[in-house]
Write a protein that binds this DNA or RNA. Structure first.
Length: 966
RNA sequence: GGGCCCGUAGCUCAGCAUGGUAGAGCGCCGGGCUUUUAAGCAGUUAUCACGAGGAUACCCGGAAGUCGCGGGUUCGAAUCCCGCCGGGCCCGCCA
């Protein structure tokens, strides 16, 4: 046996790493976590989302997997047949994008991926060779899924690996195909137009990673409303706006006099827009011919009719940007600072703009919105407040626009037109649908970003394209949300504070594109040009875990995995005999799969990080309720917050990410797990602090040394069989079993780790240090202790379990029985009285000038304990009168001393605790040495109030003895 | 920009539904020491051990906050109301 006490910490760490590897190997060889249905135990399907295999995992992921595994292991010990499967996500665009970059020798990607691979592979040549294989997307997925699965093992995750798959496997494709056929059958899938960022040069949609400047510039699609202003001869000036409700205050239309405009011939209409806008509209799905090209000034003076009936002139303005939207805007000078400034310019000097004076003379702002704290024309106020003199003071005008927009959006009410009386914040949608219904408006999309123009990494400018036939999941389809709400209401959300976010997510989810034209994935069965998007193909796969190992065992091909197959296995539809003939699987095997699904489903618990609430987890609820019977809806989601490092968010750019693979090298699995679980509640951000990590490592070492000591002396008993300290430690350990059980079952793993590990460790050390020598007893208690710790530190627990002589696995051992007879609340209170007494004594010592030699502890007289006992019948809120009346006999006899005692009890509202006089006396005696040490006093004397001459004795209370220093 | 959450000690968080003395853990500082140890010795003793000094764990104690800012309600606001500022998650052909 190795005695760690004599060696350094690093040696200890290396030793537990060795122990961990040993048990990981053993678990794997003995198939400890391979779970099959069994009649004698309830099944418990526990999942954590599979990782995406585009790179290494870090300790933030590690938290989720560690905490999740603690839950899985706890329920396994509580008598559930726990299945914890795992798979790998490879569908989606990033992996393919990585391969593309490796293929075109992008240096940054090469460096990044070499650094990733080096985490796992030492030889630089080998690293180079592996990365060069990444030109194939499947190689990226294969490499990372293989190393990540080793990370899971190295963390001690109790996974059944027989059910492993990747989302690119043909069996999975067949399953997802079925899923989407079902969704379509239910009417939850619709098709429609969808605007997205697009690179015309590459002919492809672009995501953040494809854009120059990436996430910093935050490129987005912005929807303008193109409003039609008609000329007498039937042409349309398409003026774009973000505030269509202002149409009721239109006074004129603006074009840039020098801007280049075109006339387009569409089906049945002629539109005028800027030349640049024509290109954009083409991408947005409009079909037209360019009829002619001309300068904006040609339009000036033209009269056009607005949808609200007003006839207004076209005027020139320099602030109009032909590169933005349609290059034509309409003017609302009462509520738009730019329009106001431009109108004033042109009214002041019509000649300069080449406009006849009489055309502009009569144009005045039209008030249409009431805004608190503003008069008739808010735009005028905002412009004048800033001393703006011309439309060319762009930055001031932008500031003014922001001010007015905000004020009107939050406080404004429309006061004219068919929507008079509606708040601005609510009116936009109504106006848009009104305009569209009358064919007076069309949507016009534009790219917006912090920095324009937005460029693709290939160099071309990113524009908005509109896909005409995009497939959507329509979360607002009749009945779907009702079911989702119903499912959520029945579910357990842990911590409960996150439920609100789920509820809100269900509310605002609308249509969501569910297929793309790039990336790895499953083709839409009813439109194979499209590939099912990766958040949609990962919503009900927990069901797939229940049968995938059978599918592989039976070598079922795509032909066998028809919709009817899944219909039977997951929904119980159809007749196995009939189906058997149809698809060539034996009826017996079909039944077996159906039974296995029924054994494991519903999903008992899914654990993940909070970022998944508003997407993955909510989708999972929606897809489940869409497809499965009610009895198979998910039961519980548990969540944890992320991990930061030394107070700072971990990120690639900061270079402060700790990869998960470092854990078994620099720390250890159990060490990591104990830290992850004990350092923060689920609902708390975990701050990874190296100092704290070290402290936990040291505690682990203390623990292991203590266990060594117990095991090496377990045949000896130098103290009483059943002395007070023995009864105390036995009580404490049994209480721990009970409390930790309660903490785990209410998903408070942190409390469980603190109570079960740190506090129990302290108790054990205290027992040994202050006179307790019954190691035979400790060994028995260790048998329980190690089991309540097994979920958190499974490897050390397994090692100790075997050193205790067990031949089976603690990972599969039952949760320990609580010996209720051993639990003695009074004895635990008595110990608390000793600790409190030490604290009191130290507080007194602080103010004493000279250091005393002796401490006399005087325990209250018996009658006081009697009073407290009598008062216990009172329940809070406790009234002074009632208390006094109960104690009246003593009040008469003892006077003030009794009154003080009653008042203390009333003040504590019944929370005053004591252990009874004899018990307190006894415990104080037993721990006299501890008291002396912790107070630094040489002699400690314990006395009864009845047999002392000390005046202070009158102050002694039950549970709070009087202290006399000398 | 929108939805939700949050802002209290250096860090992570309690306290806020019901207004009345601002808290915990970790870290930091000081002290103690029954533990342990790297390096090392002019000494005593001699394979051990003792000693000063340092470090770890442990024990005891301490410092540290205008409760994000500004208004309001109130005798009294971290807590209730309004406004601002700052942060997080989500709103990606990211997962």
């Amino acid at each position: 046996m190795i005695c760690f006490a004599k060696r350094g910490f690093e040696e200890f760490a290396e030793n537990i790493r060795e122990i961990e590897r040993k048990w990981q190997k053993e678990w794997k060889e003995k198939k400890v976590f391979e779970a099959d249905p069994r009649p004698d135990k309830p099944g418990f399907l526990f999942t954590i989302p599979y990782p995406y295999t585009s790179g290494p995992l870090h300790i933030g992921h590690g938290r989720t997997y560690a905490v999740g595994d603690v839950f899985a292991r706890y329920f396994r010990m509580k008598g559930y047949n726990v299945l914890f499967p795992m798979a790998f996500h490879i569908t989606g665009t990033p992996i393919e994008a990585i391969s593309a970059k490796i293929r075109r020798n992008d240096p940054k990607t090469w460096e990044l991926y070499k650094s990733y691979v080096s985490l796992y592979v030492e030889d630089p040549k080998e690293v180079e060779r592996i990365v060069s294989k990444f030109v194939e997307p499947m190689e990226v997925a294969k490499f990372f899924s293989s190393v990540i699965s080793r990370d899971f093992d190295a963390l001690g995750c109790s996974i059944d690996w027989r059910r492993k798959f990747t989302t690119g496997d043909p069996e999975y494709n067949a399953f997802v195909s079925w899923q989407f056929l079902k969704l379509r059958e239910k009417g939850y899938i619709t098709q429609g137009t969808y605007p997205l960022l697009f690179c015309p040069a590459e002919g492809q949609a672009v995501g953040e990673d494809d854009i120059m400047g990436g996430d910093e510039i935050a490129a987005e699609v912005q929807e303008f409303i193109g409003i039609k202003f008609r000329t007498k001869d039937g042409k349309v000036l398409l003026a774009s706006t973000l505030r269509p409700e202002t149409i009721f205050g239109v006074t004129n239309v603006w074009v840039h006099p020098e801007g280049s405009y075109v006339e387009l011939s569409l089906k049945g209409e002629r539109w005028i827009v800027s030349e640049r806008a024509a290109e954009k509209l083409k991408l947005q799905g409009w079909e037209f011919e360019v009829v002619r090209k001309f300068k904006g000034r040609e339009l000036v003076g033209l009269k056009v009719k607005a949808p609200n009936g007003s006839e207004v002139p076209v005027l020139p303005a320099l602030f109009v940007d032909v590169n933005n939207a349609t290059g034509i805007v309409y003017s609302v000078p009462a509520h738009a600072p730019f329009d106001y400034a431009a109108l004033m310019d042109v009214k002041r000097e019509p000649e300069k703009f080449g406009v006849p004076r009489e055309l502009v003379e009569t144009i005045e702002p039209i008030h249409i919105i009431d805004v608190p704290k503003y008069g008739e024309f808010p735009a005028k106020e905002a412009v004048e407040k800033r001393g703006i003199r011309s439309q060319e003071e762009l930055s001031k005008l932008e500031e003014a626009t922001k001010e007015i927009y905000k004020a009107e959006f939050y406080g404004g009410v429309l006061v004219v037109g068919p929507f008079a009386g509606t708040k601005i914040s609510e009116v936009k949608e109504k106006v848009v649908s009104w305009l569209m219904k009358r064919k007076d408006a069309v949507p016009v999309y534009e790219v917006t970003a912090k920095r324009l123009p937005v460029r693709c990494r290939c160099g071309a400018e990113v524009l908005v394209a509109v896909l005409p036939d995009q497939w959507f999941l329509d979360f607002n389809a009749p009945g779907w949300k009702e079911k989702a709400r119903k499912a959520l209401n029945r579910m357990e959300i842990v911590p409960e504070i996150y439920r609100r976010l789920f509820e809100d997510t269900i509310e605002w989810l609308d249509k969501r594109p569910c297929a793309r034209k790039r990336g790895i994935g499953t083709r839409l069965p009813f439109d194979p040009e499209w590939i099912i998007e990766s958040l949609s193909d990962s919503t009900i796969y927990m069901a797939f875990y229940t049968v995938i190992h059978h599918i592989r065992r039976l070598k079922l091909s795509k032909e066998a995995l028809k919709p009817e197959f899944w219909d039977y296995v997951f929904l119980g539809k159809g007749d196995p005999e009939q189906l058997s003939k149809n698809i060539g699987i034996s009826a017996e095997d079909l039944r077996k799969m159906r039974e296995e699904f029924l054994y494991w489903y519903p999903l008992d618990q899914r654990h993940t990080m909070i970022a998944h609430i508003t997407n993955h987890l909510s989708f999972s609820i929606f897809h489940h309720v869409a497809i499965f019977e009610e009895r198979h809806w998910p039961r519980r989601f548990t969540l944890n917050e992320p991990v930061i490092r030394e107070g700072v968010k971990m990120s690639k750019s900061k270079g402060n990410v700790i990869p998960l693979v470092e854990v078994p090298r620099h720390y250890s699995a159990d060490w990591f797990r104990l830290y992850m679980v004990s350092a923060a509640d689920l609902s708390t951000v975990l701050d990874w602090r190296e100092a704290g990590v070290r402290t936990v490592g040291n505690s682990l070492r203390r623990f292991y040394e203590l266990v060594d000591q117990i095991l090496s002396k377990s045949e000896t008993s130098s103290s009483e069989e059943n002395g007070i300290l023995e009864r105390w430690i036995a009580s404490r350990m049994n209480s721990a079993v009970k409390e930790v059980d309660e903490m785990f079952s209410s998903f408070r793993p942190r409390d469980a780790a603190i109570r079960g590990f740190f506090i129990a460790l302290r108790d054990m050390e205290t027992y040994i240090r202050y006179g307790g020598g019954n190691f035979r007893l400790l060994r028995d208690l260790l048998d329980k202790w190690i089991r309540i710790l097994a979920p958190v530190i499974p490897h050390l627990a397994e090692e100790i379990w075997h050193r205790l002589g067990h031949k089976d696995f603690v990972s599969l051992a039952p949760w320990p029985e609580v010996d209720e007879k051993a639990i003695d609340p009074e004895i635990e209170i008595a110990y608390q009285v000793v600790e409190d007494t030490i604290e009191d004594a130290n507080n007194v010592l602080k103010v004493l000038k000279e250091k005393p030699e002796t401490l006399k502890i005087i325990v209250a007289p018996e009658w006081k304990y009697q009073v407290m006992e009598d008062l216990k019948q009172l329940k809070p809120p406790i009234d002074v009168k009632d208390a006094m009346s109960i104690a009246r006999n003593f009040l008469k006899e003892k006077g003030k001393e009794a009154r003080d005692l009653v008042m203390e009890f009333v003040k504590a509202q019944g929370a005053w605790k004591n252990a009874g006089r004899e018990m307190e006396m006894h415990m104080l005696e037993a721990l006299r040495q501890m008291i002396a040490e912790k107070t630094g006093v040489r002699t400690v004397i314990i006395e009864r109030a009845e047999s002392t001459k000390e005046e202070r004795a009158s102050r002694a209370l039950p549970g709070k003895p009087a202290l006399v220093f000398a």
